[in-house]
């Protein structure tokens, strides 16, 4: 038997499906190049600017921790703002998410309304919300917490709704087959099944809110961000560096703590 016979005996495979990958890669590269060209982004400026940037960053070399106790207190206020924002988001999302999950929603209208509400909340940037609330409620942590709460409700609600949509169909049918109604379905088939995932999302939102709360201080929503804003404007690089380090350390601690907590909840 020669090679030719082997080939003729080979069973024919069905036609190979087309792989569109090269087209996508080429299109993406072309778009990136067009953007550089259109916005006249110059990489030369970046190259020449490295030296200037190095000089600027070197001014932060000596952090000034002389006022540390005040910084920690300010960090505490920022943390409290982030925590309240997260709690607000969790409370609202707890009620909106089941309505925004296709498999749990009692009717299509409720589903649409809940979805669009969450989309709207997500679409409002928290910096903008903070500006509005500061104007309406005055300076301080409260407008910050509200702004974070409204904006992250949109995110948390969407994440939780999508988790709920992934609940095993069988488990839903198991509870539904007993004659459970909408709130009972949510409390028995829904939340218990996604508890672990939900905790992960809440911790992620908390983490994000701590970072964001530090920035919100810049628009007058209190906390460590306001202090950073002031020291930066006074060109007080030492104190600015100390504040940035305090924020960084806090975020690292929260990151590790939430990883640990998620690991614990098996």
């Amino acid at each position: 038997m020669n090679v030719h016979d082997l080939n003729s005996a080979r069973p024919q495979l069905p036609p190979k499906p087309r792989n569109p990958m090269p087209v996508w890669v080429a299109a993406t590269l072309a778009m990136l190049w067009l953007i550089v060209w259109d916005l006249e982004i110059s990489f030369e400026t970046l190259a020449y600017g490295v030296e200037d940037m190095a000089e600027y960053f070197s001014r932060y070399r000596q952090p000034d921790f002389s006022d540390l106790s005040r910084y920690l207190e300010l960090m505490g206020i920022t943390l409290a703002t982030a925590l309240w924002g997260t709690v607000f988001a969790l409370l609202v999302a707890f009620f909106l998410a089941p309505l925004a999950a296709r498999n749990f929603a009692p009717n299509p209208l409720a589903y649409r309304i809940a979805r669009e509400t969450l989309n709207f909340m997500r679409a409002m940037p928290d910096l903008l919300l903070a500006l509005i609330f500061v104007a309406a409620l005055g300076l301080g942590p409260l407008p910050g917490a509200l702004a974070l709460g409204v904006h992250t409700t949109g995110f948390l609600g969407k994440f939780l709704a999508e988790s709920l949509e992934r609940v095993d169909k069988g488990v839903c049918e198991g509870v539904a087959s007993t004659g459970a109604d909408f709130p009972q379905m949510v409390m028995y088939a829904g939340w218990p099944s996604i508890l672990r995932e939900a905790l992960g999302y809440v911790l992620y939102i908390l983490d994000r809110n701590v970072r964001m709360a530090s920035v919100l201080g810049l628009v007058g929503a209190g906390g460590i961000g306001l202090a950073l804003h002031d020291t930066l404007r006074l060109f007080n690089y030492g104190q600015s560096a100390a504040l940035i380090l305090v924020i960084l350390a806090t975020i690292l601690i929260i990151d590790y703590a939430s990883a640990w907590l998620r690991g614990r909840l098996g």
């Binding site: 488990v171 049918e173 198991g174 509870v175 087959s177 007993t178 004659g179 028995y188 218990p192 099944s193």
Partner: peptide, 22 residues
């Protein structure tokens, strides 16, 4: 009438369909 009907007609499944975490 599903709630009423289902209260009298129970179902047992191949995959048990229990809520794992409860």
């Amino acid at each position: 009438k599903l709630r009423h009907i289902r209260s009298r007609v129970a179902m047992v499944f191949q995959q048990f369909n229990l809520v794992d975490r409860l």
